[in-house]
């Protein structure tokens, strides 16, 4: 199985595994993923705390920059197999910690959903603080 690449920028790295934080004084360069504009962000870190953010064009970019340096999160979109043998599209209804993505997949892979399924149905609950909801419908 593929591993998350937490060590993408080996020379200047700031990330957190579980409760442990790695404290560095550094500038991190990020690409904002909140919207398709993909702004280039600069984040100043002092003693592990975000002290300045630049490059963002909206408030959400600022939030993203802060989160990405303290607790990076991702919305996971995937499929769940249904009882008819075909998959249905699903997503986490809120972002999950980035390092949990593959654990989310493990739980999702085991699940077989019964039909019908409608957009918004919760197919799995409490997955790292998120629900897995259907994003498409079938068998209605």
């Amino acid at each position: 199985m593929a591993q998350l690449n937490a060590k993408r920028q080996p020379a200047k790295i700031y990330f957190r595994i579980g409760e442990r934080s790695y404290d560095y004084n550094m500038t991190r360069e990020l690409t904002c993923i909140v919207c398709p504009m993909g702004c280039s962000l600069k984040v100043e870190l002092t003693d592990g705390k975000v002290t300045a953010i630049s490059g963002n064009t909206c408030k959400r970019g600022e939030e993203y920059a802060e989160n990405e340096c303290t607790n990076p999160q991702r919305t996971v979109t995937t499929t769940i197999m249904c009882e008819d043998g075909a998959p249905i599209a699903v997503k986490t209804d809120r972002p999950v910690p980035k390092e949990k993505i593959f654990e989310v997949m493990k739980l999702v892979n085991k699940k077989v959903a019964s039909l019908p399924v409608s957009v918004g149905d919760v197919l799995l609950d409490d997955v790292f603080g998120s629900n897995i909801v259907a994003t498409a419908s079938r068998g209605e």
Partner: peptide, 28 residues
């Protein structure tokens, strides 16, 4: 699956920056 590489003929990507970040960089 193991994705070994994405090759791009041009010196820049044809995709959105956010997708390079969250689809490639996140997974190395």
């Amino acid at each position: 699956a193991k994705v070994h590489a994405v090759c791009e003929l041009m010196p820049y990507s044809g995709g959105l920056a956010r997708n390079i970040e969250q689809c490639l960089n996140d997974f190395g």
